[in-house]
Amino acid sequence: MSEQIAFWILSAIAVLGALVAVRKRNLIHGVFALMIFFAALSGLFLLLLAEFIAAVQILVYIGAVGILLLFAIMLTERVAGDDGRRMTSRGWFWGLVVAAAVFVVLLLPAIQQWPTPEVTQAPDPSVEELGHKLMNPYVMTLEVLALLLTAALIGAVTAAQGMRKPKEEGSPE
């Protein structure tokens, strides 16, 4: 019973947060709505007994990605939103149509064999087991991931730094 209440509340928060995040004109408000969405999703992960993932979700998405987004917004546009300008893109109608179509397509397999029996057998939520898995069979994946993150870090730094143009001779500056 308490699980169901938690599920409905969390999913309502997640949907509302996502909607506000994509529809809000003020970007800072949008980012905070996005973080509420992330937090609700973390709650859902807890509900699914994946507690390590829930912690990582908060740590990475709210703690790092959210902050990064805030920094990017502060560094670029006027944060109060695109004043008076059109918020939506040219083909927004077709975008909506495609999104709705995708939703229908995703829904169809999900609601086949509608009432599935509830699974009561809980998985062992041991973080220790996860750690052993990461260090034993999946250690190569982990290393590749570390390499990817390092590469992404360096790439991001170089991309954001911008290429310094060599000063042309006699250019009026």
Binding site: L19, V22, S89, W92, G95, A99, V102, L107
Partner: peptide, 22 residues
């Protein structure tokens, strides 16, 4: 169903907004 809904909200945002950060 929840995941499908969220996915489509994201899709909608990606298709309809002009701001790259959004």
């Amino acid at each position: 169903i929840l995941a499908a809904l969220l996915f489509c909200i994201g899709l909608m945002g990606a298709f309809t907004r002009r701001n790259a950060i959004v």
